[in-house]
Structure formats: structure tokens, C-alpha cells
Amino acid sequence: MSERLEEICSIELPTGESVGVHRRRFTGGLGPHVAIVAGIRGDTPEGTRVAHAVARHLSTHHERLCGTVDVYPCVNPLAAHHGARHWPGFDLDLNRRFPGRADGHAPDRVARTLLDATRAADMVIELRGAHPAFREETQAHVRHDQPVALERALRANVRVVWRRSAELQGTGTLAAELPGLICLEGGVGNRLTDGVGLELCDGVLNLLVVAGVLPEDALPFHWAAIQRPLVATDEDIVRVRATRGGLFLPSGRMWGEVEVGTPLGEVVDPIAGETLEMITAPVAGRVLAMREQPVVYPGSLVARLVAT
């Protein structure tokens, strides 16, 4: 039984300095291997907070572990250093570089190293934050054709499990390379959000129980407290867009129930202030995401609903 901080990759900078990409490895005998990955983009501190919260719990319970848990708290440290989404200098989205290249430049090398380190894991959990313009309810994303991942994600203490088509996961993402990956996200991009970190931390710990790495009685809560999520397909997720440009002033409540026609907000002229458009729910359901950055163009996403 051990806990180690390991450098999986070193990023050499032109000035001669270097920055390490690290993992915290918790080992407790034979058992499944779980990888928890955060900070692929630099504007997702919520994921890093959750990773450390999970690691803190494992630090005090690693004698109870049956297996190995690798926690990668931030795989894009240079971007996280100034809260940027992309890898600075290269201006590359690390989550479009997988599978990466062992002989490539630093972003490609980090992508490849991370993929090689997680490919054989029995379960991989990616922790993301929301896009900086949005507030998101807690949700798990799994690929629609992965029944084991779905079954696990149902116990991830999230509001929604979204079964996504492979095409919607995008090319070059870690999820595209690891079909069984469970991606957890929620909160506000580039911010820490009250409650969300705790929800996701509890969800990850429960997933470790589901994987058989952690005994149930090592959880800091009773398993019955885990939320029962809605399961949604791509068709159930309804994107609501502005048709006018201006300032979007939301009136909908996160996770609030809406009927067809329920107001979600209005777009106002940013100078004159008059209402340009009232935006209402096109379907009955719940509010999964709401725009926080108010400037919108025609076509800008303002809310995402789960149809019920």
C-alpha cells in the first residue's frame, strides 16, 4: 500500500526550464486499475479540485484500496497557469491532439504519454469543467454503445447521464481514443462552483466502489445519498439558441422544470436596452445548462435542455 507522486512527462521549455506532468498513484494490492484525469484544458479548475479532493480521501484510506488509482490532477499545467483553454505558445487544444505522438512536440507527447498510461486501465474518468460561457448541471457523458460505462455512470452522482454518439465526441479527444471513458462535468468554466465539486467528488468515490477498488464502508457518505440521474440520448438534449444579437438576460433556473413556452430569458439591445427577443423553452424538460456570459450573436447557444 503506497502513495507516490510521479512525473509521467517533462515539458522542456525553450529557456531551458521544464514543467512536469504528474500523477498521484495510490496502490493497494491486486485489483482493478482506475485513472482519473483532470485539466486537459487549462480552464477547468473544477476538475483539478475534484481530483485533489478524491486523492485526499484516498490518502487517508489507501490501506483499504484493492487495486491502483492514478490521479492526474492537471495534464496541461502551462495552460492552467493562466487559466487558458489552449496550450500556450502552440495555441493548441490538447483535447484535439489524441492519440498524440511519442516523437512529437510537447502537446503531442503529453497526449501520447497520457493515452499510453491510461489505455489499459479498467476504468477511466475524465473530469472537465463547463465551457467558460456556461453554467452546467452535473452530468456524465458516455458513448452510446458502451453499456458498461453507462451502468457505471448511473452511479456517478450526477443529474444526467448523456449517451453521446461517437461523432459528437469529436475527433482527437481522449474520449474518442478510450470508448469506455466516463466524462464528468459541471459548474462554470474557469471557476469553482459551490456544491459541484462535492457532488462530483462523491460521484468519483462511488465509481471507485463500483469498480471494486474501494470498499463501500470507506465512503464518506451513505451510498443511498447518490443521485439517480436522468438518462438522455443526443435526441433528448435540446439546444436553445438566440436569434438576435445582444445581451442575454437569463430567467430560467438551473435544473428547473420547464414546459413548452416557459421563459428562459430575453435578449436586449446592449445600448438602448429594449427587448429584442424573448426566449422560451421549445420542449418540456429541465434546464441542463444556462449561458452565463451574456453577449450573444444570432445562433449563440443560450441554454441546453433535457427533454423529459
Binding site: 438576435r244 444579437g245 445582444g246 445581451l247 446592449p270 445600448i271 453577449v295 450573444v296 450573436y297 444570432p298
Partner: peptide, 10 residues
């Protein structure tokens, strides 16, 4: 054309 908030239009 596309409405561009604060700056008229694109």
C-alpha cells in the same frame, strides 16, 4: 449579415 452586439453588425 449577423448582428454583432455593441458594434453594429458583422
Amino acid at each position: 449579415r449577423l448582428e454583432a452586439p455593441y458594434r453594429g453588425e458583422y
